[in-house]
Design a protein around this nucleic acid. Structure first.
Lengths: 123, 123
DNA sequence: TCTTTGTATGCCTTGACGAGTATATGTCTG
DNA sequence: CAGACATATACTCGTCAAGGCATACAAAGA
Protein backbone atom coordinates (compact mmCIF):
# COMPACT_ATOMS: atom_id res chain seq x y z
CA UNK A 1 0.00 0.00 0.00
CA UNK A 2 1.40 3.25 -1.06
CA UNK A 3 2.13 5.74 1.67
CA UNK A 4 0.47 9.06 1.41
CA UNK A 5 3.53 10.57 -0.08
CA UNK A 6 4.34 13.94 1.32
CA UNK A 7 1.98 16.25 -0.52
CA UNK A 8 5.02 18.33 -1.34
CA UNK A 9 4.29 21.71 -2.75
CA UNK A 10 5.44 22.61 -6.21
CA UNK A 11 8.03 24.83 -4.59
CA UNK A 12 9.81 21.95 -2.94
CA UNK A 13 9.87 20.05 -6.18
CA UNK A 14 11.61 22.76 -8.16
CA UNK A 15 14.04 23.45 -5.34
CA UNK A 16 16.16 20.67 -6.80
CA UNK A 17 18.55 21.90 -9.51
CA UNK A 18 18.48 18.60 -11.38
CA UNK A 19 14.73 18.68 -11.54
CA UNK A 20 14.73 22.22 -12.82
CA UNK A 21 17.18 21.10 -15.47
CA UNK A 22 14.90 18.28 -16.49
CA UNK A 23 11.93 20.62 -16.73
CA UNK A 24 13.95 23.02 -18.84
CA UNK A 25 14.92 20.18 -21.13
CA UNK A 26 11.31 19.24 -21.62
CA UNK A 27 10.26 22.73 -22.64
CA UNK A 28 11.43 22.18 -26.19
CA UNK A 29 9.88 18.76 -26.65
CA UNK A 30 9.19 15.45 -24.99
CA UNK A 31 12.19 13.32 -24.22
CA UNK A 32 12.92 9.76 -23.26
CA UNK A 33 14.71 8.89 -20.06
CA UNK A 34 17.82 7.98 -21.99
CA UNK A 35 17.87 11.29 -23.81
CA UNK A 36 17.59 13.17 -20.56
CA UNK A 37 20.26 10.98 -19.06
CA UNK A 38 22.69 11.76 -21.86
CA UNK A 39 22.00 15.48 -22.11
CA UNK A 40 22.26 16.09 -18.41
CA UNK A 41 25.04 13.55 -17.91
CA UNK A 42 23.56 12.03 -14.82
CA UNK A 43 23.15 8.37 -13.95
CA UNK A 44 19.97 6.76 -15.16
CA UNK A 45 18.57 5.84 -11.72
CA UNK A 46 18.94 9.43 -10.67
CA UNK A 47 17.00 10.58 -13.70
CA UNK A 48 14.30 8.00 -13.14
CA UNK A 49 13.92 8.97 -9.51
CA UNK A 50 13.63 12.63 -10.27
CA UNK A 51 11.12 11.87 -12.97
CA UNK A 52 9.16 9.86 -10.46
CA UNK A 53 8.98 12.85 -8.15
CA UNK A 54 8.06 15.16 -10.99
CA UNK A 55 5.38 12.77 -12.18
CA UNK A 56 3.87 12.32 -8.73
CA UNK A 57 3.72 16.08 -8.39
CA UNK A 58 2.10 16.48 -11.77
CA UNK A 59 4.93 18.36 -13.44
CA UNK A 60 5.33 15.74 -16.15
CA UNK A 61 3.48 12.86 -17.67
CA UNK A 62 4.75 9.90 -19.62
CA UNK A 63 3.58 7.75 -22.45
CA UNK A 64 4.94 4.34 -23.20
CA UNK A 65 6.77 3.87 -26.47
CA UNK A 66 7.85 0.25 -26.41
CA UNK A 67 10.64 0.06 -23.84
CA UNK A 68 10.94 3.82 -23.72
CA UNK A 69 8.93 6.28 -21.74
CA UNK A 70 8.45 9.63 -23.30
CA UNK A 71 8.10 12.38 -20.76
CA UNK A 72 6.50 15.73 -21.41
CA UNK A 73 5.59 18.79 -19.40
CA UNK A 74 2.31 19.49 -17.75
CA UNK A 75 1.52 23.13 -17.03
CA UNK A 76 -0.50 23.12 -13.83
CA UNK A 77 2.13 22.95 -11.08
CA UNK A 78 4.26 25.67 -12.56
CA UNK A 79 1.18 27.76 -12.99
CA UNK A 80 0.64 27.40 -9.28
CA UNK A 81 4.07 28.83 -8.63
CA UNK A 82 3.31 31.60 -11.06
CA UNK A 83 0.09 32.34 -9.21
CA UNK A 84 1.95 32.68 -5.92
CA UNK A 85 4.40 35.07 -7.51
CA UNK A 86 1.52 37.17 -8.64
CA UNK A 87 1.00 38.84 -5.28
CA UNK A 88 4.48 40.30 -5.56
CA UNK A 89 4.10 41.78 -9.00
CA UNK A 90 2.21 44.79 -7.72
CA UNK A 91 5.03 45.32 -5.28
CA UNK A 92 7.62 45.03 -8.02
CA UNK A 93 6.07 47.53 -10.33
CA UNK A 94 5.64 49.97 -7.48
CA UNK A 95 9.24 49.43 -6.55
CA UNK A 96 10.46 49.93 -10.10
CA UNK A 97 8.40 53.06 -10.52
CA UNK A 98 9.84 54.48 -7.34
CA UNK A 99 13.34 53.62 -8.48
CA UNK A 100 12.79 55.23 -11.83
CA UNK A 101 11.47 58.38 -10.27
CA UNK A 102 14.43 58.39 -7.97
CA UNK A 103 16.88 57.99 -10.82
CA UNK A 104 15.07 60.60 -12.84
CA UNK A 105 15.56 63.07 -10.07
CA UNK A 106 19.22 62.21 -9.93
CA UNK A 107 19.56 62.66 -13.64
CA UNK A 108 18.02 66.07 -13.41
CA UNK A 109 20.48 67.01 -10.74
CA UNK A 110 23.67 65.73 -12.23
CA UNK A 111 25.09 63.42 -14.85
CA UNK A 112 27.16 60.71 -13.29
CA UNK A 113 28.05 57.49 -15.05
CA UNK A 114 29.32 55.15 -12.40
CA UNK A 115 28.12 51.85 -13.77
CA UNK A 116 26.52 50.36 -16.75
CA UNK A 117 22.87 51.03 -16.35
CA UNK A 118 20.04 49.71 -18.34
CA UNK A 119 18.63 52.36 -20.62
CA UNK A 120 15.31 53.37 -19.31
CA UNK A 121 12.52 55.38 -20.69
CA UNK A 122 11.37 58.58 -19.17
CA UNK A 123 7.90 58.80 -17.82
CA UNK B 1 35.28 29.70 11.07
CA UNK B 2 32.28 30.33 9.03
CA UNK B 3 32.20 28.67 5.69
CA UNK B 4 30.82 30.57 2.78
CA UNK B 5 27.33 29.47 3.45
CA UNK B 6 25.62 27.68 0.67
CA UNK B 7 24.81 30.17 -2.03
CA UNK B 8 21.39 28.60 -2.09
CA UNK B 9 19.30 29.42 -5.07
CA UNK B 10 16.15 31.44 -4.63
CA UNK B 11 14.20 28.26 -5.29
CA UNK B 12 15.54 26.54 -2.22
CA UNK B 13 14.70 29.55 -0.12
CA UNK B 14 11.06 29.67 -1.08
CA UNK B 15 10.71 25.92 -0.76
CA UNK B 16 10.06 26.50 2.94
CA UNK B 17 6.39 27.18 3.68
CA UNK B 18 7.17 29.37 6.66
CA UNK B 19 9.42 31.55 4.57
CA UNK B 20 6.80 31.90 1.90
CA UNK B 21 4.37 32.93 4.61
CA UNK B 22 6.79 35.57 5.84
CA UNK B 23 7.27 36.92 2.35
CA UNK B 24 3.53 37.09 1.84
CA UNK B 25 3.18 38.98 5.10
CA UNK B 26 5.73 41.51 3.96
CA UNK B 27 3.93 42.25 0.73
CA UNK B 28 1.54 44.62 2.42
CA UNK B 29 4.10 46.50 4.45
CA UNK B 30 7.24 46.17 6.52
CA UNK B 31 6.91 44.29 9.79
CA UNK B 32 8.93 43.80 12.92
CA UNK B 33 10.02 40.36 14.06
CA UNK B 34 7.47 40.42 16.85
CA UNK B 35 4.65 41.24 14.48
CA UNK B 36 5.60 38.39 12.21
CA UNK B 37 5.92 36.12 15.20
CA UNK B 38 2.41 36.93 16.37
CA UNK B 39 0.70 36.80 13.02
CA UNK B 40 2.25 33.52 12.00
CA UNK B 41 2.14 32.07 15.51
CA UNK B 42 5.59 30.64 15.42
CA UNK B 43 8.33 30.84 18.02
CA UNK B 44 10.53 33.88 17.80
CA UNK B 45 13.81 32.02 17.21
CA UNK B 46 12.23 30.28 14.28
CA UNK B 47 11.15 33.59 12.81
CA UNK B 48 14.57 35.10 13.34
CA UNK B 49 16.30 32.17 11.72
CA UNK B 50 14.07 32.26 8.69
CA UNK B 51 14.58 35.98 8.41
CA UNK B 52 18.29 35.39 8.56
CA UNK B 53 18.08 33.04 5.62
CA UNK B 54 15.86 35.41 3.71
CA UNK B 55 18.17 38.31 4.40
CA UNK B 56 21.29 36.40 3.34
CA UNK B 57 19.55 35.47 0.14
CA UNK B 58 18.49 39.05 -0.52
CA UNK B 59 14.76 38.49 -0.21
CA UNK B 60 14.41 40.98 2.62
CA UNK B 61 16.29 43.79 4.23
CA UNK B 62 16.02 45.27 7.70
CA UNK B 63 16.35 48.64 9.31
CA UNK B 64 16.96 49.19 12.99
CA UNK B 65 14.25 50.90 14.99
CA UNK B 66 15.59 50.94 18.53
CA UNK B 67 15.33 47.36 19.71
CA UNK B 68 13.15 46.40 16.81
CA UNK B 69 14.17 45.39 13.34
CA UNK B 70 11.78 46.30 10.59
CA UNK B 71 11.93 43.90 7.69
CA UNK B 72 10.78 44.67 4.19
CA UNK B 73 10.81 42.92 0.83
CA UNK B 74 13.43 43.19 -1.83
CA UNK B 75 12.36 42.32 -5.35
CA UNK B 76 15.43 40.84 -7.00
CA UNK B 77 15.38 37.18 -5.91
CA UNK B 78 11.75 36.68 -6.71
CA UNK B 79 12.34 38.29 -10.04
CA UNK B 80 14.93 35.63 -10.66
CA UNK B 81 12.33 32.95 -10.06
CA UNK B 82 9.99 34.79 -12.34
CA UNK B 83 12.65 34.87 -15.02
CA UNK B 84 13.09 31.13 -14.82
CA UNK B 85 9.37 30.61 -15.16
CA UNK B 86 9.44 32.68 -18.28
CA UNK B 87 10.71 29.87 -20.47
CA UNK B 88 7.56 27.93 -19.68
CA UNK B 89 5.11 30.65 -20.52
CA UNK B 90 5.51 30.01 -24.22
CA UNK B 91 4.69 26.38 -23.53
CA UNK B 92 1.66 27.37 -21.50
CA UNK B 93 0.17 29.55 -24.14
CA UNK B 94 0.76 26.87 -26.73
CA UNK B 95 -0.97 24.44 -24.43
CA UNK B 96 -3.92 26.73 -23.99
CA UNK B 97 -4.17 27.27 -27.72
CA UNK B 98 -4.29 23.54 -28.28
CA UNK B 99 -7.00 23.21 -25.70
CA UNK B 100 -8.99 25.99 -27.28
CA UNK B 101 -8.77 24.38 -30.68
CA UNK B 102 -9.90 21.16 -29.16
CA UNK B 103 -12.87 22.80 -27.51
CA UNK B 104 -13.68 24.62 -30.72
CA UNK B 105 -13.93 21.34 -32.52
CA UNK B 106 -16.14 19.87 -29.86
CA UNK B 107 -18.43 22.86 -29.64
CA UNK B 108 -19.73 22.80 -33.16
CA UNK B 109 -18.09 22.41 -36.50
CA UNK B 110 -16.64 25.78 -37.16
CA UNK B 111 -14.32 26.63 -39.96
CA UNK B 112 -11.09 24.81 -39.47
CA UNK B 113 -8.20 27.12 -38.99
CA UNK B 114 -4.77 26.16 -40.26
CA UNK B 115 -3.69 23.84 -37.53
CA UNK B 116 -0.04 23.38 -36.92
CA UNK B 117 0.31 19.84 -35.82
CA UNK B 118 3.37 18.13 -34.51
CA UNK B 119 4.50 15.42 -36.90
CA UNK B 120 2.84 12.22 -35.88
CA UNK B 121 5.22 9.64 -34.65
CA UNK B 122 5.07 6.16 -36.01
CA UNK B 123 5.35 3.27 -33.66
C1' DT C 1 21.54 50.18 38.55
C1' DC C 2 18.10 46.23 37.70
C1' DT C 3 14.37 44.72 34.83
C1' DT C 4 11.84 44.23 30.85
C1' DT C 5 11.37 43.94 26.01
C1' DG C 6 13.00 42.67 21.36
C1' DT C 7 15.94 40.01 18.62
C1' DA C 8 19.82 36.97 17.42
C1' DT C 9 22.57 32.87 17.94
C1' DG C 10 24.47 28.42 19.46
C1' DC C 11 23.74 23.55 20.34
C1' DC C 12 21.47 19.31 19.67
C1' DT C 13 18.37 16.02 17.75
C1' DT C 14 15.65 14.30 14.24
C1' DG C 15 14.00 13.52 9.85
C1' DA C 16 14.10 14.04 4.89
C1' DC C 17 16.28 13.62 0.73
C1' DG C 18 19.77 12.76 -2.90
C1' DA C 19 23.66 9.94 -4.60
C1' DG C 20 25.39 5.47 -5.51
C1' DT C 21 25.03 0.72 -6.34
C1' DA C 22 22.80 -3.36 -7.36
C1' DT C 23 18.96 -5.51 -9.04
C1' DA C 24 14.21 -6.18 -10.87
C1' DT C 25 10.94 -5.62 -14.68
C1' DG C 26 9.89 -5.40 -19.27
C1' DT C 27 10.57 -5.25 -24.34
C1' DC C 28 12.84 -5.77 -28.56
C1' DT C 29 15.97 -8.47 -31.83
C1' DG C 30 18.44 -12.16 -33.55
C1' DC D 1 15.10 -18.85 -26.61
C1' DA D 2 19.08 -15.81 -25.21
C1' DG D 3 20.83 -11.56 -24.77
C1' DA D 4 20.88 -6.59 -25.31
C1' DC D 5 18.52 -2.51 -24.27
C1' DA D 6 15.46 0.81 -21.52
C1' DT D 7 13.59 2.02 -17.31
C1' DA D 8 12.16 1.43 -12.50
C1' DT D 9 12.89 0.28 -7.75
C1' DA D 10 15.14 -1.24 -3.30
C1' DC D 11 18.60 -0.40 0.01
C1' DT D 12 22.25 1.97 2.33
C1' DC D 13 24.70 5.84 3.51
C1' DG D 14 25.98 10.62 4.22
C1' DT D 15 24.52 15.22 4.49
C1' DC D 16 22.00 19.02 5.64
C1' DA D 17 18.45 21.81 7.32
C1' DA D 18 14.49 22.79 10.43
C1' DG D 19 12.66 22.81 15.10
C1' DG D 20 13.16 23.19 20.08
C1' DC D 21 15.42 25.12 23.74
C1' DA D 22 18.47 27.90 26.28
C1' DT D 23 20.99 31.79 26.23
C1' DA D 24 23.40 35.97 24.67
C1' DC D 25 23.04 40.63 23.31
C1' DA D 26 21.10 45.22 23.07
C1' DA D 27 18.15 48.99 24.02
C1' DA D 28 14.48 51.03 26.88
C1' DG D 29 12.39 52.11 31.16
C1' DA D 30 11.91 52.01 36.20
Amino acid sequence: MAHIRGVESAFEIIAEPSRRAILTLLVSSEQSVGEIERQLRMPQPTVSKHLRVLRDAGFVEATVDAQRRLYRLRPEPLREVDAWLDQFRRFWSAHVDALERHLDRMDDAEEPKPLKRKPRKKK
